[in-house]
């Protein structure tokens, strides 16, 4: 790891003031991706702005028909939040499937969403639940937020403050994980709100998380695993790597979507 100067502001406002002043500064959330990347010298910011003491970025609240989660809320705290478990159990489930216990104690929702790893779990929940990413500058719908591999709509120095999730009537997340890294080879989040079904797929797309329109239309017509009968998913545009090829991932998308719908209906 190359040397950097270290800052630890106590509030989100101080953090964003700092990032505007200090040249080539990066925010440090849980550090579960940034620190390993810096160790490998793939990232070398000259300054880190550690958000771990910014208490105003943490916590889970019920606001009307939404659950609002602070960016620095740890995966462990989302997985064990009474409010999340009661209102969007699928989201608590998902948080409890990330990494391993020690990683969940440190990693944060804001860090995961800002990083937009193509195999991360949270981006799929944000898209399927039609979440809004709230930054220090604006509100960004999830559909516009995730731009590509490790790319988001965030501008230089923009900070995720919280994420607002509308409460669905039914939702579930199913993940086929790589047994070594525990990242999703394919993860599918399904949600039903009113009469509309939304589906988001992580781990599979060469451009990162995406919504499979045809599956959404089929599930909006009939929110049941049988609603997907006769459908298949094309392998074009899906990832091929040492873990799985595109055809296998295409098959898994259908399997995981059916399982997720069954799980959502069972709740």
């Amino acid at each position: 790891m190359y040397a950097f100067t270290y800052h630890r502001p106590e509030t989100a406002r101080k953090a964003t003031n700092l990032v505007a002043k200090v040249e080539d500064a990066k925010f440090l959330a849980g550090g579960m991706t940034l620190l390993p990347t810096m160790k490998q010298r793939l990232a070398a910011p000259t300054a880190l702005i550690d958000l771990s003491t910014a208490e105003d970025l943490r916590g889970v609240e019920l606001k009307g028909r939404n659950i609002v989660i602070g960016a620095m809320t740890r995966h462990f705290d989302v997985a064990n939040s009474q409010i999340v478990k009661e209102k969007i159990p699928a989201l608590a489930d998902l948080a409890g499937m990330i990494g391993d216990p020690a990683v969940r104690h440190r990693g944060t929702i804001g860090g995961s969403v800002a990083n937009n790893d193509p195999a991360a779990d949270y981006p799929s929940a944000c898209m399927a639940l039609n979440a809004t990413i709230i930054t220090n500058k604006r509100k960004i719908p999830a559909d516009e937020f995730f731009v590509g591999l490790f790319e988001t709509a965030l501008e230089e120095g923009e900070l995720i403050v919280k994420i607002s999730f509308p409460i669905p009537s039914k939702a579930a997340y199913e993940k086929f994980r790589n047994p070594a890294s525990r990242y999703a080879i394919v993860g599918v989040f399904v949600a039903k709100k009113g009469s509309v079904a939304r589906v988001a797929v992580t781990g599979a797309g060469s451009g990162g998380v995406f919504r499979p329109n045809r599956l959404e239309a089929a599930l909006t017509a009939k929110f049941h695993p049988k609603g997907l009968d006769g459908l298949s998913f094309p392998a074009e545009g899906l990832n091929t790597d040492i873990h799985a090829d595109a055809e296998y991932r295409a098959h898994l998308i259908m399997v995981m979507t059916r399982r997720a719908v069954a799980k959502a209906l069972a709740k």
Binding site: Y6, R8, L28, G31, M32, L35, P36, K39, L48, D50, S52, F76, D100, P101, A102, V103, H105, R106, A180, S181
Partner: peptide
């Protein structure tokens, strides 16, 4: 492993397990 996979470096911080190879000492003031 030094890549937060293996768990040989697990310690407890404020009562919870953490991988000490993937946290800055400065963050734990």
């Amino acid at each position: 492993c030094d890549t937060s996979q293996c768990g040989c470096c697990v310690v407890h911080v404020n009562g919870s397990s953490l991988k000490s190879c993937t946290v800055l000492a400065m963050s734990l003031e």
